[in-house]
Simulated assay, not measured.
Amino acid sequence: MQSISATNIEYYQIITGYITELEIYDTHESYIQARKLAGYPDINLKLIGHLDLVFMENSIITNYSSMNKSDCPTSDVEQYVRFKLGDKVIEGTFCGVAFSEGNYVEVVVDQIEGGTYFAYALRQPAEHLLWLHPYATTGTEAHLNRSSPPKPLRLKALGGIGILIGILGVVQAFTQGSFVPLLLVFLGLMCLLPLRMFSNIQKEVNSGSTIANRIFATLGYANPKRFDITEEENLVINKLECLSQHYLESYEGPLTNSEDIIQEFIEKYKNQQSPEDTENDKLLKQFMRLQKDGMQWVYLYRSAPTIPNYITVIHTEDNETKLV
């Protein structure tokens, strides 16, 4: 199997142009199969970016669903894409893909074996959207002033049950003089597995991303190691949070659940047009209308920095029709 080639340890390249021949795959198996049919060499996806974390997340969902006999999505959390910009073949991993053929994009890429390019970020200037490789949202120093998110209550409960089952198995094995109760110990360890996997993911995420360092440096962000794209987006959506809270506090309609009331406000707000709307308001409403289930790691930005002149940029579009 082939792994990605590191063309530059600090920066990626950028390819710009209009999307053609877009193909979307909902699982890594279908993506790998499509690559084989297209005659591309094998690649080890676990060596690309943070796809090892993505596969771990898929395993957590599968294991949790199996243990609780609950309904969970059968497809992976990520999607794989392949499209062309000019004659350049671009591949990549995003979630809840909402860009389409004909869109003008600026794609942060690294060349891989076989001559194609793997995308680590895709910017849509017209929509002010930045699609990022999974978990590549913060630089390696951006986490220093941020607290760790708590573990989900269900995972904590599952971990506690696993510990109790394990202790019970050991006690029974000792008192009964039999190894059969040790099966309970094994079952307890299986209950602890999702908690352990979640902790590993959180540890990786909270330490920031070297992939994000390279993405933000390539796009021209100042202090890329300290940059957090979520903070940039929050500057746009803070107003929405204030408006939704005011709507909730002054609500006098038939709904009683606060989440339903907020959802009612969001549905109204995103379809409203007002002469008082700022550019940020218009961008936010456009983004809200675009959103769909499964969209992750895509962010709304206010303005894009200038791409540094030392970054290799391949323009595949006609300069006369390039969107600014």
Rank of each mutant, 00 (worst) to 15 (best):
S75K: 14
I60C: 03
T62R: 07
E57P: 00
I61P: 04
S75C: 03
S59T: 05
G49F: 01
D71F: 13
P73C: 03
L47D: 11
Y40K: 14
V54I: 08
L47K: 04
Y40Q: 15
S70Y: 06
S65G: 14
S75L: 03
L37V: 14
M56K: 08
Y64V: 07
L45F: 08
D42H: 10
C72I: 06
N68G: 01
I60K: 00
D42V: 13
E57L: 01
D71R: 12
I48W: 07
D71V: 13
I60L: 02
G49E: 04
I48V: 14
N68S: 10
L37E: 15
M56N: 01
N63R: 02
L37D: 15
I61R: 15
I61S: 10
K69W: 10
K46R: 09
K69L: 15
L47Y: 06
K46I: 00
H50M: 06
H50F: 04
S59V: 01
I60D: 00
I60V: 15
L37W: 04
N63T: 05
E57M: 01
S59A: 09
L47M: 04
P73K: 08
G39R: 13
S65H: 05
K69E: 12
T74H: 10
D71G: 01
H50S: 14
G39M: 06
I43H: 14
L37C: 14
I48C: 05
S65Q: 07
K46V: 01
L53Q: 11
M67D: 02
L53G: 07
K69T: 11
L51A: 08
P41W: 11
L51D: 11
L37M: 13
